[in-house]
Amino acid sequence: MIGLLILPAALLIILIFGTPLIRYIWLSFHASSVITGLVPIANKGANWQRLINDQRFWQDSFQTFRFAALSVSLELFIALAIALLLNQKWRGRNLVRAITLLPWALPTTVMALGWRWIFNTPYGPIELIVNLIGLDQFNILSNPNTAWLATVLGDVWKTTPFIALILLAGLQTIPQDLYEAFKLEGGSNKEALFKITIPMLKPYILLSILFRLAQAFGVFDLIQVMTGGGPAGSTESLAIYAYLNAMRFLDFGYSSTIMIGSFILIVFSSIFSIYLFNKFKNIQGYSR
């Protein structure tokens, strides 16, 4: 009976999420590009063979992974600190809460342009400061070794407030009693953080990790605007590569292959990161 009731919703979800996925999988086994006049022609897994031998795909995977790993960990760390601060009672807290949300509310392209300007050499504020101190120019966006760090910074700046908000919501579900009881048991504030706060925030942290990993793996506009994937392709993400293949090269077959390929990678790495988090938790925890 209940199964029958949720059937329409389930069908809708399958239709909305399943259809494109199936379409992409199907396309990934076809050549469909300007060369074929955009007509899909089955090519027996040639796309997949190409993907596996495509250095650029693996390089972009590596770049996407390190981008996601570093941004998500930094974001969690900073967001937890912000959430803890905002969970305290102090004057002007509400104002600060609202202000911290601003980066999240800003459109990514706008803020990416902002970061591009901030890192601009020689007119951006960072270079101006560096100049004042008397150091050499940074050229952070012009160096393949550092440009990706700048994009991480942009991402952290933008999405930390969002995670902070999730964690803050989580913090507010922890009854004050628990901290008081823990204090009376002889625990310090620091111990409370590791033995109560973080374990109790676990579902919220997991949610943030999952959500943010998926988002960070699909990073597109931030990088497109800040570096365009350069210099030397060092900041190119999988999403940009897939986009290039579809919209610039009109190679829809291979673009679908990249998308499905990265989708598989995302699923595996999400599972892996949750496994890692649980492992870390168990070292800390008392749960049995």
Partner: peptide, 21 residues
């Protein structure tokens, strides 16, 4: 060529590599 976007993309990446590396 209809494949201009691809070969231009290849050129851009490699030139960028030359200029920054």
């Amino acid at each position: 060529t209809p494949l201009y976007a691809q070969i231009s993309d290849v050129l851009q990446r490699h030139l960028s590599e030359i200029l920054t590396g």
